[in-house]
């Protein structure tokens, strides 16, 4: 699959997220383009996770979130996911008591045959998971769990991948593998939005870098990241 016109861009306008009385994200605007990796970089507490959680619908927000021409802002979480958004949270959050295969299948579409095809695709992207398919997810290493979390997102074949700190706690070799898989997904046409503290990783994989500080998206500073 080459970058496709059928895949929609994620567009955010005037997004504000509040936790109680505290503003976590203020009036944010952002675009994640199909076929590209957009890195949202910032320090701990800058608002990266809140922004991603707001896009998925896990955090309440004001403002507009749209996928192509479709406005998702008023939709519940499930409808946003079915519209084409996939979320890979910080800490992976694989289902520990489910096997690797079950973790992937549970995120798949209706229809056993289609699910099996997607499962094969996920395992092609992460061949390290294939021999572990019957193992429970808690038995995997951190790196393998990260691959599983990305593979699980892939099962829905979304337009947009949201990844929250995908390199956290991973060895350099595994980070390279994760970077390679994200690049492949982007080349297949998906829009990838990655929240990262790891400036080196962001500079290496990103087609575009957006900086966030204390909840505010900074004016364009391409290629430079202040951490």
């Amino acid at each position: 699959m080459s970058p496709s016109q059928h895949i929609n861009a994620l567009q955010i306008e005037g997004l504000t997220v509040r936790h109680g009385g505290v503003v976590a994200v203020a009036d944010a605007a952002l675009r994640a383009a199909p076929g590209a990796i957009t890195c949202l970089v910032g320090m701990n507490g800058a608002g990266k996770s809140s922004l991603l959680r707001a896009i998925v619908g896990l955090a309440a927000s004001e403002g507009d979130i749209s996928l192509g021409t479709r406005n998702l802002s008023r939709l519940p979480i499930e409808a946003r996911i079915h519209a084409g958004i996939a979320y890979v949270p910080e800490g992976r959050r694989v289902f520990p008591g489910l096997t690797v295969g079950e973790n992937l299948l549970v995120a798949g579409p209706s229809g056993a045959r289609l699910r099996r095809q997607r499962l094969d695709r996920a395992l092609d992207l992460f061949p390290q998971l294939r021999p572990r398919i019957q193992d429970r997810a808690w038995q995997l290493s951190g790196g393998q769990q990260q691959m599983l979390a990305i593979g699980r997102a892939l099962m829905a074949e979304p337009d947009v991948y949201l990844l929250d700190e995908p390199t956290l706690g991973l060895a350099p070799q595994i980070i390279d593998d994760v970077a390679g898989s994200l690049r492949q997904l982007a080349e297949e046409g998906a829009a990838i939005l990655v929240a990262e503290q790891n400036a080196g990783f962001a500079e290496r994989v990103a087609d575009e870098i957006v900086t966030i500080q204390t909840g505010r998206i900074m004016p364009d500073r391409p290629g430079r990241i202040d951490t």
């Binding site: 499930e78 949270p89 829905a156």
Partner: peptide, 16 residues
């Protein structure tokens, strides 16, 4: 079973 283990994550996968 996914909902039993992590309901928020299950929702974030589109499970109702």
């Amino acid at each position: 079973r996914a909902c039993a283990q992590d309901p928020e994550m299950a929702r974030a996968l589109g499970i109702r």
